[in-house]
């Protein structure tokens, strides 16, 4: 029952609830925005910690592997122009341009039977990478987050100018006046 592997989610949840509590209880609008940001960062952690693989490395091909890979790809291209590609027919450069993007195309990951995360490249890249997909999602989320934060702050400034306060109850009291 008690698996020690889920502590990362617990930290995320604690932070999430701290942000949530700030948003609920604090009347100050700027404080609410800070609370929302804390909440947001905790969601980032949730995703990033899911994508981490123990023993993995950052999703950038290391230099030594890279030289090997680049050399191989160029070889495929040169040979492919001469006719027979040296690698199997699933080598990308050997395919016609539209070959992979036909609407009906489905990719069947052949990696399903082997342990994921230890997928080896065709070029014998032995590196284990962490999952790059959550990184991409969160990268997008961070930038959208700063955009929305700035919009919220701008609204705070406008509210201050109109009402003279950024405390929630005072704004409500002003609204209730006829």
């Amino acid at each position: 029952m008690f698996s020690p592997g889920v502590y990362n989610y617990w930290v995320v949840i604690v932070l999430m609830m701290i942000g949530f509590y700030t948003v609920i209880t604090r009347g100050n609008l700027v404080k609410k925005i800070i609370g929302l940001n804390v909440f947001q960062v905790s969601v980032f952690w949730l995703y990033i910690s899911m994508g981490k693989i123990v023993g993995g490395t950052a999703p950038i091909t290391p230099d030594d592997v890279w030289e090997h890979l680049e050399h191989d790809v160029e070889e495929v291209q040169v040979d492919g122009q001469n006719g027979e590609p040296p690698h199997a027919a699933n080598s990308y450069a050997a395919l016609p341009r539209e070959g992979r993007y036909e609407p009906g195309f489905e990719y069947h990951p052949p990696a399903d039977d082997e342990p994921a995360g230890q997928v080896t490249h065709e070029y014998n890249d032995p590196t284990v990478y962490s999952n790059p997909v959550p990184h991409v999602l969160i990268l997008t989320a961070i930038v959208v987050g700063v955009a929305t934060t700035s919009l919220g702050l701008a609204l705070c400034v406008r509210i201050k100018e109109e009402y003279g306060t950024i405390e929630e109850d005072e704004i409500q009291a002003l609204d209730d006046e006829p």
């Binding site: 790809v73 291209q77 492919g80 122009q81 990308y92 450069a93 016609p96 341009r97 993007y101």
Partner: peptide, 13 residues
């Protein structure tokens, strides 16, 4: 946004 159309076929990279 299919970038490999930007250059002649054969060099999708």
């Amino acid at each position: 946004l299919e970038y490999r159309a930007l250059v002649e076929p054969g060099h999708p990279q």
